[in-house]
Nucleic acid binder design. Structure first.
Lengths: 356, 356
DNA sequence: CTGAAAGCGCTTACAG
DNA sequence: CTGAAAGCGCTTACAG
């Protein structure tokens, strides 16, 4: 618990002023400080294991090199972890650090979180949603540069980095269409779950799904609203597969629903993918690669959302606010400002050509 | 992006000195400052929406009210999220904030993480492991109060809050024993996975498992080392259930292995729990409650590890380092210092009395 | 080329 | 009862 060395310690040891220490250690020594003094300063700093106190630096420079991110329960899910991981990595590369505060979907805690972060003088603010939705940006957020991840500002004031869910739905459908299926059903998740925000994903995915079928000149079966968990998938698929005519492929709301469908197929003596092709959504790292057979699914760009949101913030902070637009298809204007990030298909073993 | 008010602004508006503002806002006004001045200060502070600058406070008080936590990939898993959630909540209640840095199991980044955190003058440090194991505490960690979560210091210098895995294994076995099973097999996970640290859990769980069977006067079948994922569980269970005599219950390494076992049972025409009882481990919130049937499992105390580790740090910081030991069964001495946290059984539908 | 001074926003002794 | 001063650890003009 020894006291850390300060610039004064270094100055004394090197026999110079603190100003000189500061100059040299910040690379502005040449032309200002005699070479032998520079050497002495560097040596003293090394011996003392000196490193500037970030707190003092923050006060002096009015910059904390800290990004505040508030989330609704995102820090407690594996997907949220991916987003945070991308964000943290991008921040780290620029010498920034993240302080994330989870509100557990509690509006009261949200205001508190922004307050705490602003009191600590974070340089910028991000809000990351657990599930793709609209987010009413609180006024307090705009007191510093701000950005959204996995949600959009309906007023279009704050830029949001979000998944291209229409494309995701399209990709999922194409996976089975390309394998030759002509009879495919969408096992969708509901947009509104009690106690949760209205989800934007289901509608958009269905749009993409329909588009793919239409392009292929196929009739579109009315989607079945199954749900979001294993049991829901099991129930919906059981009913669907017991009927006739039976589809040869199902595209599911997420990997858990897909697992339910696989379970239901098994219970009915159907083999996946021989008798039934199944496509998931999410690419759940603990589930999809380890299912039997491994699940073909669509990956959500969580890491990318985190990365790009942070990069956007960093750009604003370093003054590059004007200039090139972020990667992905931006769409500003009066409508919600957003950057769409691709949802790639991850092909594995649960899709095969139909038997007939 | 307006400039935030400072104590000087408040002082000017209230017509007093900054010292007075500080006193009053810190509750030390009575007896020091005239009541009418106190009122003026409070009013001015409210009008200006004044809140002290945390950075200045940190520099002045030599306290950042920030806890640094470094993790190995824990921030990117749902379980890690639970630990962090518990930690964040405990910190928040005391007016502290967490800065977590994930090393992705990269030793080089670990040193860098501690360095960054210490430069930022965190008041204390925690290390949280992704999976229960030993952790060689780096010297740099002891420059401030430190604690471990989900891992133990082999030198016993730094206290670790860890799951009572022996008890967990015991609980899992008791779940089926109490239902009347006498022929139960342990589908264990391997302690050593290539590229990962040696896991402490498997050995301890097996110990608990054996103890329960012995207490019940039952012979202990040699555990089968299945693995940690769905596929592993599926394979091991398929082989096991195809043989004779067939066990009436399996206790699994985790919920994913349990799912694999359920899948394997289904493929063989066996019903769970009628023909086979299955117990998982982890209480994976996306899996266990939604399996068909819902899975009986053992919960790991992630949230508790996070909570108690932070409380321990907070106690040290507020000087309550002497006095009462933390909750749970402490065991210090020369051996690794640790606090064991209980792993409760979560009874659901996958266990029933054996058919015969 | 180099050091003394001022100031970032606070709080705590210390005079008055 | 109240205000001026010092100082936390830095850096940036500014004199010399």
């Amino acid at each position: 618990m020894a006291r850390r060395a300060t610039s004064r310690d270094v100055a004394e040891r090197a026999g110079v002023s603190r100003s000189a220490v500061s100059m040299v250690l910040n690379g502005r020594g040449d032309g200002n400080i005699a070479v032998e003094k520079q050497a002495a300063i560097l040596a003293a700093a090394a011996e003392l294991d000196y490193t500037p106190n970030s707190v003092a630096l923050s006060l002096r420079n009015q910059r904390t090199h800290t990004l505040g991110v508030v989330t609704d329960a995102i820090a407690t899910t594996a997907f949220g972890g991916r987003l945070l991981e991308g964000a943290a990595r991008a921040a780290e590369q620029a010498g920034f650090v993240l302080v994330v505060m989870d509100t557990h979907r509690d509006a009261a805690r949200e205001g508190q979180a922004y307050r705490t972060l602003l009191d600590r003088r974070v340089d910028a603010l991000a809000f990351a949603a657990m599930t793709f939705r609209e987010y009413e940006v609180p006024a307090v957020m705009s007191s510093v540069p701000a950005v959204l991840a996995d949600c959009v500002d309906p007023d279009g004031q704050v830029l949001g980095f979000v998944p291209d869910e229409v494309d995701g739905g399209y990709q999922a459908a194409r996976a089975v269409l390309d394998a030759g299926h002509r009879d495919v059903v969408l096992l969708a998740g509901q947009a509104d779950v009690p106690g949760e925000q209205h989800k934007l994903a289901p509608g958009q995915r269905e749009l993409g799904f329909r588009r793919a079928l239409q392009e292929a000149g196929l009739p579109v079966h009315e989607p079945i609203v199954a749900g979001w968990d294993i049991t829901s998938g099991y129930r919906a698929a059981s009913a669907l597969l017991a009927g006739t005519p039976r589809p040869t492929a199902v595209v599911c709301a997420n990997d858990r629903v897909a697992l339910g469908a696989v379970l239901a197929a098994g219970a009915l003596g159907l083999r996946v993918p021989a008798d039934l092709s199944v496509v998931g959504y999410d690419d759940d790292e603990n589930l999809a690669p380890f299912m039997v057979p491994p699940l073909t699914t669509v990956r959500l760009p969580f890491k990318e959302m985190g990365e790009q949101a942070v990069r956007h913030l960093l750009d604003q902070l370093t003054g590059r606010t004007t200039g090139q637009a972020p990667a992905g298809s931006t769409c500003t204007g009066h409508a919600p400002a957003r950057v769409l990030l691709p949802c790639p298909l991850i092909a594995r073993g649960s899709v095969a050509p139909p038997a007939r």
